[in-house]
């Protein structure tokens, strides 16, 4: 995957190098040297950017909806499971609707607890990626 992306700047630089054919040899050698250094630097920068930003950008775009759905389904699942357990216990003990009421509330609590846990986890992940991203972007601009 990386090699594909690394190829793109290389091809572009090769084209630019082909243009200054008319210069004399000394200047060309010198320019080639600097061109080589310049190329190495640009390749390095492109690799770094690819490593850091490309997967993260795609992830952020893709997972926004996934995040929303994950949190919503977490809450609903809590209610459904709590309600089901209560309903089943009521059927066994013939005590409708005592257990249904208790477990529906417990299920809601479990659902909300899951939502909080998921959100905290996501927040920690976001902060972690932000922390790793910042030094990289500073290095790029400097």
């Amino acid at each position: 995957m990386l090699s594909y992306w690394a190829c793109a700047p290389m091809a572009k630089s090769a084209k630019a190098g082909g243009k200054d054919r008319g210069r004399n040899r000394i200047e060309r050698d010198r320019s080639r040297e600097s061109w080589q250094a310049d190329f190495d630097e640009r390749l390095d920068r492109a690799r770094r950017a690819e490593e850091q930003e490309a997967p993260e950008g795609a992830k952020a775009r893709g997972s926004a909806m996934g995040t929303a759905f994950r949190i919503a389904s977490e809450l609903i699942a809590g209610l459904v499971v709590g309600g089901f357990i209560g309903w089943q216990l009521d059927r066994w003990f013939d005590s409708s609707p005592v257990f249904l009421l208790i477990f529906f509330i417990l299920g809601a609590a479990a659902g909300i607890w899951n939502v909080i846990r998921t959100a905290l986890q996501m927040q920690a992940e976001a902060q972690e990626t932000a922390a790793t991203k910042n030094p990289g972007s500073k290095g790029d601009s400097g």
């Binding site: 759905f69 389904s73 609903i76 809590g78 499971v81 357990i85 417990l106 479990a110 899951n114």
Partner: peptide, 18 residues
């Protein structure tokens, strides 16, 4: 503990419903 157990049991439900 009851809430934790319920929240553990919600895993297959939320996974499949999603």
């Amino acid at each position: 503990v009851v809430i934790e157990v319920i929240s553990y049991l919600t895993r297959p439900v939320s996974l499949s419903v999603r």
